[in-house]
Amino acid sequence: MNIFRLAGDMTHLASVLVLLLKIHTIKSCAGISLKTQELFAIVFLTRYLDLFTNFISIYNTIMKLIFLGSSFSIVWYIRRHRVVRRSYDKDQDTFRHFFLMWPCLILAIFINEKFTLKEVMWTFSIYLEAIAILPQLVMLQRTRNIDNLTGQYIFLLGAYRAFYILNWIYRYFTEEHYVHWITWVAGVIQTLLYGDFFYYYFQSWKNNVKLELPA
């Protein structure tokens, strides 16, 4: 474990906590895309199939359980919670997200490191994670006005991805046989998707004004 990997995991964890905090304490999911949250739940479910068969460390197991538990409880909150679900902006969240899964699955069947069920599902989760943020970004563009917690949530998610790229660069130079084209290409694409958001986030931070995306 290097410092970049740890920073990546911690910003990822923080992003989830910020979102849960918003939903749990304010009882609101305004500005949050259920479509993106459902995709994240599928990402973790298909990636952690080896949760009970491939032990790596206590840290890994606990983090996996946190990401699984949090992603499914966020989806539950938005869909089922009596108060929270009323704040869900359904009309702004119209992305046909399940259509994103097919190309990811087909790509995973053809481009993977090993053709086994577990490996194909793992690769599928890597591809799906790369584009899972799209419904959320589309929703941001539409609503334009972004509250602080939603802005911080997306910023932390983007930071998590950026730290993972630094982690891969570090591991490439410090470990033998560390070449993983699939995760790298998917990871870079995923990080680039946050580029636009980062730009406006830093602008608003620098000028000390409320974050607002251009029409």
């Binding site: 474990m1 790596i56 993972y164 560390y178």
Partner: peptide, 10 residues
């Protein structure tokens, strides 16, 4: 750690 294993990432 085992070299080159990306499955230890989250």
């Amino acid at each position: 750690s085992i070299s080159g294993d990306s499955k230890d990432e989250l």
